[in-house]
Design a protein around this nucleic acid. Structure first.
Lengths: 160, 160
DNA sequence: ACCTGAACACCGTTCAAGT
DNA sequence: ACCTGAACACCGTTCAAGT
């Protein structure tokens, strides 16, 4: 998809439907035959990126929990522009809100399962999961050195 | 300011300069005599809201730390739309990025000071501050019940 | 089924002109 | 110093028409 490259390069808002069309070698109107609107196009790109990331995650079941989280933070940081775009759009676009909710349902469940296997007592799992998700999102959105990032994740892993 | 009400009501992106002008009883062009562009107008609104919130915070130095954080989360949640707008714009607008950085410098310092007075050991203060900021932002951006919000903040206050 | 050209309503911003 | 009307370049989207 040409849209994915453009979204990554200049961001969703700065990407015009005209430039997507140009990249795909068609006319602007053609895109509307495949996608209902620009937000639906975004969701298609998001699904594609998510599938890639999940595949990459499958190859690293062996690493330590903190290393695993660091890897996830790195992948999301590469798409930082899209992450904040999704947050902003979810507040006013039902299309994007649906995707965002499904995304969190999936990722929250994955993190919760990981915490259980790390021995976090069951009653603490929900709140710890949320704090973990918030920490990951925070690390993605605010640039810190790797040492600072590690410090936050290590601190998080002492919670219980 | 008419812009503040409109931003709160329908959001920054959905607020046209024409509607701001209408609300202020002037012409669109007039706004550009007072503000360089739409983003500068946003920053003026943000400054205004921040000043209000800081004043309100001064009246509650007595409450417990968790209550204080809950209050901050409530105020930010009221402006949730603007919060995600700022995050999204900070990535592509130097004007908004400057404000965002200054905002975090201020709020991070305030939280760090609070943590010290709660007895958090000095070497843990930076990472704990970051985790606290991330938790607040997460609570603002993801709707949870008050009980769930409290659980996250209580969990956070066990960290050290 | 797939793609286009032309148009629509709107946007932020500018500029020359007025008082 | 303050405000305006008219214009500019652009935007996402639609629609009737073509193959």
């Amino acid at each position: 998809m040409a849209a994915a490259d453009l979204f990554a390069a200049v961001g969703y808002e700065a990407t015009s439907m005209a430039s997507v069309a140009r990249g795909a070698g068609v006319t602007t109107t053609t895109i509307y035959w495949y996608f209902e609107d620009k937000e639906t196009l975004l969701v298609a790109v998001l699904d594609h990126l998510l599938q890639e990331t999940l595949a990459g995650l499958g190859d690293r079941d062996d690493e330590s929990p903190v290393d695993l989280l660091m890897w996830v933070v790195d992948r999301l940081t590469e798409q930082r522009r899209l992450v904040s775009t999704v947050h902003a759009l979810a507040g006013r676009s039902p299309t994007v809100a649906v995707w965002h909710d499904a995304f969190h349902e999936l990722t929250d469940a994955m993190l919760a399962e990981g915490l259980r296997q790390e021995g976090v007592p069951e009653p603490l799992v929900p709140a710890t999961t949320r704090l973990g998700v918030f920490a990951i999102e925070g690390l993605v959105m605010h640039p810190l050195s790797r040492a600072e990032q590690r410090a936050v994740l290590e601190l998080l892993s002492t919670v219980r």
